[in-house]
Design a protein around this nucleic acid. Structure first.
Lengths: 204, 204
DNA sequence: TATTAATCTTGACATCGTCAAGTTACCTAG
DNA sequence: CTAGGTAACTTGACGATGTCAAGATTAATA
């Protein structure tokens, strides 16, 4: 208890008080603005006014820090999705449209974060924390439940296995976003048209 | 002329003779087996028996080397696709199926190379060479021409703009592959079922 | 107030990409 | 056959990075 309003008044550097939160915030900002490559533990420490190795008392290593950033990305996305879904006045068709558009916009507005969220840097091998895995898993479960709902309502092809369709549709979103983000698809204009095409290609 | 069968007999390290090709081959092998992270210029040089900086006479820098590996990945994929397409005995529906399956298999069999081919490491900013860009562009053009063909034959929804559909379908393939490769979709079993779902979801 | 535990620092190390300057071997003009 | 040029390769060096180990400082607890 009572750990919050400690530092910032005294000139001492020990016991910053909220270093972990501060680090996460600054690191997220750095990654968001300049990309994953540009984030170095040393620079991060320096920018906050703390020594290079202070970070290691709050994050096991760099991967651990990146995991935390990615995880907060998933919760940000969950917040967005929740607000899209819970618009009572909109039709399901409108919501489907907004969901897809929202996904693409989120990914392009937070390109570097998105890269982190799905990048092999974290998902390969031992790198990703259990916490990240479960947060990400929840996002997929939510997507799955939406697909199921839209199948039942006849918006999506209901002849197809729900799990598989969820995988394919998420794959579609993810793939398109990656291609846009990585600069392979030049036009981030005309997103509406692209969304229409996605829906048209999935609707029967 | 007559530059080939020089070295390998004399113990001298100068004028290896085919260093560029050897480097590319070894680097590709390293990336394929151990991943992009694990490839260091120094280790590569050492593994071939050449000094760390010798590589810089054949590749401008590490990115340039990675570009070359990625580019050869695209041509490998082009070769595979050509052989799939040119099976005269198969129906177009079979070919469509094999194309999708072939794409997924290529990407998973060469996961690290695939990661390089589409990774932001090369596509962001100035990193990718013009040569890589044009090779990759050809792959997409080919995909586009296939989509157009299949639309005309009624295999795919022809109400949709061809370019957009090509983007969406490639996005679908790419996204699913990424999710499998990065370990987000655990099951690389049941690929056939997945392929069926992709086709079912795109066919009207 | 004394002890313990948490937090942060300085010093150090190995690894990496890459530049600069020097060395060696091949190639070609005379 | 040789002189000079050029391409290929080497060693040395630099700055940056992630991270460990050992020590210093402060807060929390008994």
């Amino acid at each position: 208890m009572a750990k919050s309003l400690k530092s910032e008044k005294t000139g001492n550097n020990y016991h910053h008080g909220e270093l972990r939160a501060t680090l996460l915030k600054e690191a997220t900002k750095m990654v968001k603005d300049l990309g994953i490559q540009s984030l170095s533990m040393r620079a991060l420490g320096e920018s906050i006014g703390v020594s290079r190795t202070a970070l290691y008392h709050h994050f096991k290593n760099k991967n651990d820090l990146l995991s935390a950033i990615a995880e907060s990305g998933f919760t940000t996305w969950q917040d967005i999705v929740s607000s899209i879904i819970s618009d009572d006045k909109a039709t399901q068709k409108q919501i489907l449209h907004r969901y897809i558009k929202g996904y693409i916009e989120f990914s392009t507005d937070n390109a570097f974060i998105y890269e982190l969220m799905f990048g092999s840097a974290l998902w390969k091998e031992q790198a990703s924390s259990e916490s990240l895995k479960s947060t990400a898993y929840k996002s997929f479960q939510f997507h799955l439940s939406l697909i199921e709902r839209w199948q039942k309502q006849g918006l999506l092809n209901s002849d197809v296995d729900t799990l598989r369709l969820a995988q394919v549709t998420w794959g579609t979103l993810h793939g398109i976003c990656k291609l846009i983000i990585d600069g392979i698809y030049a036009d981030n204009k005309n997103i509406d048209h692209l969304v229409d095409t996605i829906i048209a290609s999935q609707t029967h």
